[in-house]
Simulated scan of single mutants.
Amino acid sequence: MKIAAITGISPNVLSELKKGKPRTIELQSAHNIITLTDVLPGDHIFMTEVDLDDLYPGDHGIIVDVMCITINMKRMVEYINPYYYEERERMSVRLKVKYVDKTIARNIDGKEWAKPTQVEIVKSSVFHAG
């Protein structure tokens, strides 16, 4: 099964998700935003603390279920009168997810720039009730 992969997530966030309650996280890294452009509510995502450059088969992570996803563009304008004016844009993704299971990455696709990152995951042989 191939699913989108989100990399470089804090171990604290991953441990919080493992407690089972839905959580909303905000992502700003370009490679994660590119990966999430085709993700819809109901899809599964592989999340890991490993950075994209260091992601290889055998790395551990978790599977989460996407409950809600919103991609935003924020514009910020800075003025220092009378000569300085700067406008910046920042894109971010707000993602509400719920923990499903832990897993291991088998094959990785899309580690190149501007390509969505996908991993083939090892299917779990242990199932949890609830």
Rank of each mutant, 00 (worst) to 15 (best):
M1S: 08
M1G: 03
A4V: 04
A5C: 13
G8D: 06
I9T: 00
I9Q: 02
S10K: 10
P11A: 05
P11T: 14
P11D: 02
N12Q: 07
N12T: 13
S15I: 05
S15Y: 06
E16Q: 06
L17N: 01
K18S: 05
K19Q: 14
K19R: 15
G20D: 01
P22I: 01
P22L: 04
R23C: 06
R23S: 05
T24H: 04
T24P: 04
I25M: 12
I25V: 06
I25Q: 05
E26Y: 02
L27R: 10
L27A: 14
Q28P: 03
Q28R: 14
S29V: 09
S29R: 15
I33C: 08
I34Q: 06
I34G: 07
I34C: 02
T35F: 00
L36D: 05
T37P: 14
D38I: 01
P41V: 03
D43S: 05
H44E: 13
H44T: 07
I45L: 06
I45Y: 01
F46Q: 00
T48N: 08
E49R: 10
V50Q: 04
D51W: 08
D51I: 15
D53L: 15
D54V: 04
D54I: 10
Y56F: 11
P57I: 02
H60W: 06
G61F: 02
G61H: 03
G61V: 08
I62M: 00
D65G: 00
C68A: 12
I69Y: 03
I69M: 05
I69A: 05
T70G: 12
T70Q: 10
I71G: 08
I71E: 12
I71Q: 09
I71L: 09
N72Y: 09
M73T: 14
M73W: 08
M73P: 13
K74C: 11
M76P: 02
M76T: 12
M76I: 11
Y79C: 12
N81W: 13
P82L: 10
Y83D: 12
Y83F: 10
Y83C: 15
Y85E: 06
E86M: 11
E86W: 11
E86L: 09
E87Q: 04
R88G: 08
R88C: 04
R90G: 02
R90K: 07
M91E: 12
S92L: 12
S92Y: 15
V93Q: 01
V93K: 02
V93E: 13
L95M: 09
V97K: 02
K98I: 00
K98W: 07
Y99N: 00
V100T: 08
D101M: 08
K102Q: 08
K102C: 13
T103R: 02
A105S: 01
A105G: 03
A105K: 00
R106S: 08
R106W: 02
N107L: 13
I108N: 03
D109Y: 01
K111N: 03
E112N: 13
K115L: 04
P116Y: 01
P116S: 03
P116L: 07
V119H: 00
E120C: 03
E120G: 05
K123E: 10
K123I: 07
S125N: 15
S125G: 14
S125Q: 15
S125W: 11
F127A: 10
H128A: 15
H128Q: 14
A129Q: 15
A129G: 07
G130D: 14
G130Q: 15
